[in-house]
Amino acid sequence: MYRIRFHGRGGQGMKTASRILGTAFFLEGFEVQDAPRYGAERRGAPIFAYVRADREAINERGIIGRPDLVIVADESLVPIAAAGVMTGITGDTVILINSTVPPDLWQNRLNITGPILTLPMTTEVEDRLEARFIGALCAGAAVRLVDVISLKSLKAAIGRELEPLGPEIVKKNMEKALIAYNSMDGHAGCVKEGGGMKAEEYERPTWIDLPFDEAALSAPVIHGAATSELMKTGLWRTMRPLIDYDQCNRCWWLCSTFCPDGAIRINDEGYPEIDYEHCKGCMICLANCPPHAISAIPEEQAKGRSEGGKKS
């Protein structure tokens, strides 16, 4: 059975990728499961989708624990433990990362010996209009890496899944999927089916035993205020807004009022300050700043920079 996981951020098309790949497997005569992993979090947050495909009926259920192929659409997710990119990876798992960093460097970084491939789609991630094609890119690459699906089925699957979006978008997705497919030529078929899991191999999760308490203790009541601030939604961001304080004319109400997350506060001098721990990178502030004092840079380049969010 093939077990494949796609990791990305909400809005990057991982659900689409799994739909396309799942349908392509299906058209090829496989039994298929494909599902996005729904949680509370949304657009911009780490999410994943997965596909199981087998010639026989699939009895396995739930999230894929031991993947044969992991495709990462957004490299910034790799170090985020909560994104679970590295979960269950073995020496046989093929990892494909959307990155311009060479594979051997990734092997070093992650301290693993298993096969790592890269496919530079980075420009697509930065340009959010292009981001909608990442799903097709990932699916195209996956099809080549397993190499048991014909191009005809891949195309038919894209047509089926994306038809409501109109012929233009279908065409563009086909092109992108083919580019990714061809770029994996040198690795065709490198992903091998993992064996069936036996009941004995099942690893128990580490349970925490919670004693049965009275309702007053055990009911889910929150007594603290604004505890949501412990959630660092700044990790969702791929682009970072920067304020040029020389240009800011302290009109303050706009960026701070419009920011849906309330992540821009006004300091005592009337300058806005961005809370990067929580800014999700929607760029509403950038789009609405009258003197155009806000710009954006890719989060990758912003690492380690402190200016631009706080008036010094």
Binding site: G10, G11, A40, E41, R42, R43, G44, A45, A225, A226, T227, S228, E229, L230, M231, K232, T233, W236, R237, W252, W253, S256, T257, F258, C259, P260, D261, G262, A263, R265, I266, D275, E277, H278, K280, G281, C282, M283, I284
Partner: peptide, 23 residues
């Protein structure tokens, strides 16, 4: 100029509903 709704919620980046709720 100060906002009382806590940050760190699970709403989508750019959610117009959350913008209205915080205002």
């Amino acid at each position: 100029s100060t906002h009382i709704l806590g940050t760190g919620t699970a709403m989508c980046a750019g959610c117009g509903g959350l913008e209205a709720v915080h205002e």
